[in-house]
Structure formats: structure tokens, C-alpha cells
Amino acid sequence: MKIKETSVVSASGLGLTFETGDGPVRALSDVDLTIGKGEFVSFIGPSGCGKTTFLRVIADLEKPTEGTILVNGMTPEQARERRAYGYVFQAAALFPWRTIDRNVALPLEIMGVGRDEQQARIRRTMDLVNLTSFGNKYPWQLSGGMQQRASIARALAFDADLLLMDEPFGALDEIVRDHLNEQLLELWARTEKTICFVTHSIPEAVYLSTRIIVMSPRPGRVSDVIHSTLPSERPLDIRETPEFLAIAARVRDGLRAGHSYED
């Protein structure tokens, strides 16, 4: 199969089976998917549908057991070694003994970026997530939403073109989540990064994405792919438009179809 020059992630026949004490568990099965440069792709589905596992495969945190996957035309391991992506976890996962600035500096230190360059990048990414004046605070002094923004700044600091986000706003209340969704879109427009975003909120997926991948569980597989027809300019109240609701309805149908065989 010829990989297009612009594809950031391309998976074909991808499968992953975990060997557990209770026997093998198929977390992913037969996933074919190509993600192009600059896309904002959401993965949505019930828990156990393999959406997080797929993200972790891209990040080389899990090894697939079947099929192939390329990240920037390389194996995930090579891509990781070249620091091809920034990963945002569900929890902010900031180091409590480092100030916010030093947390953002962590990947830069590891990658051997010079002091002055570090300072410049910290300032730039802290501006991007609107945390400019909080650099000297420790994580516990910040709200949950601010901590998550700091962890996004940390993922952006080393300028990887691919951002992998695993339910980054799942633990936050809806008001904060709306606000962060708006900021994330803004940030995406400004940085032109490719974003893979795992969520189980339908409005969040529809609001953010250019493409929505609906997944279903046991075994985790892609059950529907929905291209968003929403404009790239998206104020929050776009969520009340018929167009938005139509896409949301399709996502919901897709989720329901994936579930139906169970009950």
C-alpha cells in the first residue's frame, strides 16, 4: 500500500490483543485509518472500545499484535524517538515538585534544548494556553482546568506537529470544558497541528473535529467515520445550529449501532 506523503498516521489491518490472566482480550481489531496533516480527528465510543489503546499505539506506548501502522511514514517507535508527537493524558500529570514553567521545560531539558531557547519556548507556549502569569506557581496552586492547560503547554513546548490527547478534559466540569474546547480550537487554528482527540462526549467531538471516528467495543473497531461539514470558524453557539445537531445525531446513531449487538 502506498502511503500518501501528507498522511501523519496510517494504520491498516491494525489489531492488538492483550494477554491477561483471564485469557486474551482483543482491544483493537482490523483498524484501517489514515489521518492527514492538519486534521482534527476525534475518537469517540464507550469505554473498552479501544480508542485510548489506538492513541497509545500511535504513541508507541503499546505494541500492535497485527497489521501495520506508520506515524510520519515511520514506525511508531522511530517516530517517538524523533519526538514526533506531544501526548496529553487524562490527568494533567504535572510533576508536583516543579513549578509550571519547569514542568513545561521538562521535555526541553530532556531533549537538550539550551537555556535561552527554553525560556523563549516556555514563554511562547504559556502565552498560547493563557497561563503567562502563572509560571512560578506549583501545580497544586492551580485549578484543574489550569493544570490541564499547563499540560497542553508542555506537550506543545517542543513543537511536535502531532498532538495526541486522551480525554484531556474528561475530569473537568462542563463550563471549564467549554472554555477549554474554544481555546483548543483557537490554538489548533494558530499552530496548524494535527490533533488526535479521544473523548466520550458527543458535543465535544462534534464541536472540535474535522472528522469523527466512532468506535465500538469487544473487539475495539471503527464502526463509523463522519466528516464534519461545520465551518472552521466555530463559536460556541454553533452547537445549537441544525447542522451541528444533525452531525451529533449521526454520531449517536453510530454509537447505538455499535452497541446494539450487546443487549
Binding site: 506506548l61 517517538r80 519526538r83 506531544g86 501526548y87 500529570a93 530532556i110 531533549m111
Partner: peptide, 20 residues
């Protein structure tokens, strides 16, 4: 999660040791 984070940065074992 912290160990995974260091892994995504391709941090060496000494780096993970000293920084985490």
C-alpha cells in the same frame, strides 16, 4: 502516567531516574 510521559519524550534511563 509519569513514566509513560517520560517514555513519550524518549527519555533515557538516567534522565527518568534523576528527573522523576
Amino acid at each position: 502516567t509519569h513514566l509513560d510521559l517520560m517514555h513519550t519524550y524518549n527519555a533515557s534511563r538516567p534522565q527518568t531516574f534523576w528527573k522523576l
